[in-house]
Design a protein around this nucleic acid. Structure first.
Lengths: 116, 116
DNA sequence: TGAATTGATCAAATTATCTTGATATATTAA
DNA sequence: TTAATATATCAAGATAATTTGATCAATTCA
């Protein structure tokens, strides 16, 4: 039974192509952002209602401000949401371009404005 | 600052539509399966090489059998991989239909056989 | 100006996921 | 039939993600 050994010690035949490594890391982070029911609900609301500030989204999500900001940051960091600050308000919205790049047309219908 | 309260106590205006709840849970589980670099690498190898047994995949992934089986099960549970048992071997492969349903055409090129 | 609101962030507690080594069952090969 | 191989699964420990309540800075409103 083989133990894990450093990539450098593995023949080039056997090793996973390291050129894709950064790409996989990128998609890992994006799918991690999508891998949460609450965050999918946030996306769905923004898809239907459009740009929204935290204080309006919080009661719709039935979430405390702190928790909601935590989840919004994860989606924003993954470039799945855009954010626009006006005064003391932060308006978040779906980043349609990113969604289109990631998800199938079918899923776009759930998470992308004016798709279907 | 609003505390979280049970959905039943929230007006229908404010509450998240519960009819989508099961759907979001489903996608959550699928994106969770995708949200791991090692699992994306597994998918990429299967995309390129086609159906493969655990004992052939293990050295390519530079992973112990136990760990690899753990990750394969997660992908299989999410219906992202198919599994065919022949004797004592288990052959895993990409479930192209599911991948197409989830991911954009661009991503299919990375994770879907003969796409681009 | 002073009080209230908005939203980001922090630390601690909780919960979920991943890794590891061991074991068990089934099958194949000698 | 015995030994070796293939794979799944388990329990324990290690890591990572989430929740909670508090605090802070920057507005906005009265």
């Amino acid at each position: 039974m083989q133990k894990e050994i450093p990539l450098t010690a593995v023949s080039s035949e056997k090793a996973v192509d390291p050129s894709n490594d950064k790409e996989f890391e990128l998609y890992e982070s994006k799918f991690k952002a999508l891998a949460d029911k609450k965050r999918l609900q946030i996306m769905n609301i923004l898809t239907q209602k459009g740009s929204m500030c935290v204080c309006d989204l919080a009661p719709m999500m039935n979430m405390t401000q702190s928790k909601l900001s935590y989840h919004l940051k994860i989606l924003w960091d993954a470039n799945i949401l855009t954010k626009e600050t006006r005064g003391t308000w932060s308006y978040y919205d779906i980043n349609t371009e990113e969604i289109n790049h990631l998800l199938s047309h079918e899923l776009c219908c759930i998470f992308k404005p004016s798709c279907c």
